[in-house]
């Protein structure tokens, strides 16, 4: 068993794509984590499935950008429904998330059986969106991922301080006259885009891991948002590359779970061994609770 594939242009391409996906996921996951919306990401990624399948059914095309537009739209709709259901009924967020997640995914699976009857279904390879198959990335896909990632990073850079205050204290942002709703929509849209990008390599079922784990890991290493975002992006990229590498090396594996495992591993390591916050350093005390101010 050799490592020749490291020199392989196809592998490099795929690794680049996965790294970008991981980086984008880590950066937006930071905001999701801090806004306590980690699980919204999960609901949105599941909600993307019917959009992908519908895009294929309606256009018959298997172009990645097109499928991902469908994914983004339905993920967005899912997020919107979560908000609508929690605001306009007695259903609380946990149940609203579970509802949207499972119903959208179910609709997606039902539509998938329709799509599979199409003669072109096999080449469309819609199944790869379930658990992810990074190896199927084409050069134009990676180019497209790079462009979108660049746009996402640029917008986060431009609206950095607004997103920061939105994440920290939305009530203050509103009192200051910031258009909180518009910013919220923008940030959610960016998250949806990050999820859509991740679908091909990680799949609808596990994309949330690329959002949550790198961000949770990064939080353990620093008390500054600036550093946390960079670290989370780095961890995400690392998980992406490492996951792709491992799944190629082991073979016969969808990439999604392997990337998710790598991200989880980084998170576990950080939770245990990060300086100061690492659980390994805490002397065992009843409950092991560390005083972190009156949070809760």
């Amino acid at each position: 068993m050799g490592f020749v594939f490291l020199m392989d242009p196809t592998f490099r391409l795929v690794a680049t794509g996965s790294a970008l996906i991981g980086a984008v996921g880590g950066v937006l996951g930071t905001f999701a984590l801090l806004r306590r919306q980690s699980l919204l990401g999960d609901a949105m990624s599941h909600a993307a499935l019917p959009g992908i399948v519908l895009a294929f059914l309606l256009t018959g095309s298997r172009d990645l950008p097109l499928l991902l537009v469908g994914a983004s739209l339905s993920a967005w709709l899912g997020a919107l429904l979560v908000v609508l259901i929690t605001h306009r009924s007695r259903i609380r967020p946990d149940a609203a998330l579970g509802l949207v997640l499972s119903v959208f995914f179910g609709i997606g699976m039902a539509l998938l059986t329709v799509a599979q009857r199409r003669p072109t279904a096999a080449q469309a390879g819609l199944e790869r969106f379930l658990f992810g198959q990074a190896a199927l990335m084409l050069p134009q896909d990676v180019e497209w991922i790079a462009r979108t990632a660049a746009l996402i990073f640029l917008l986060i850079f431009l609206f950095w301080k607004e997103f920061k205050v939105l994440a920290f204290d939305p009530a203050f942002a509103a009192a200051m006259g910031l258009p909180v709703m518009a910013l919220d929509i923008l940030l959610t849209t960016l998250t949806v885009l990050a999820i859509a990008l991740g679908l091909q390599a990680v799949g609808v079922v596990l994309t949330s891991a690329v959002l949550v784990a790198p961000a949770a890991a990064a939080r353990q290493w620093t008390n500054r948002l600036e550093r946390m975002v960079v670290l989370a992006g780095g961890f995400g990229a690392l998980a992406g590359v490492l996951g792709t590498l491992l799944s190629t090396w082991i073979g016969r594996l969808p990439t999604g779970p392997v990337i998710a495992l790598c991200a989880s591993g980084i998170a576990l390591f950080s939770l245990l061994f990060a300086p100061r916050r690492g659980l390994a350093w805490t002397v065992k005390s009843p409950g092991g609770k560390r005083r972190a101010g009156p949070s809760g």
Partner: peptide, 11 residues
Amino acid sequence: TGRVKEDAALG
């Protein structure tokens, strides 16, 4: 442990 919030712990 207080290192992550509940939603992230699940996630």
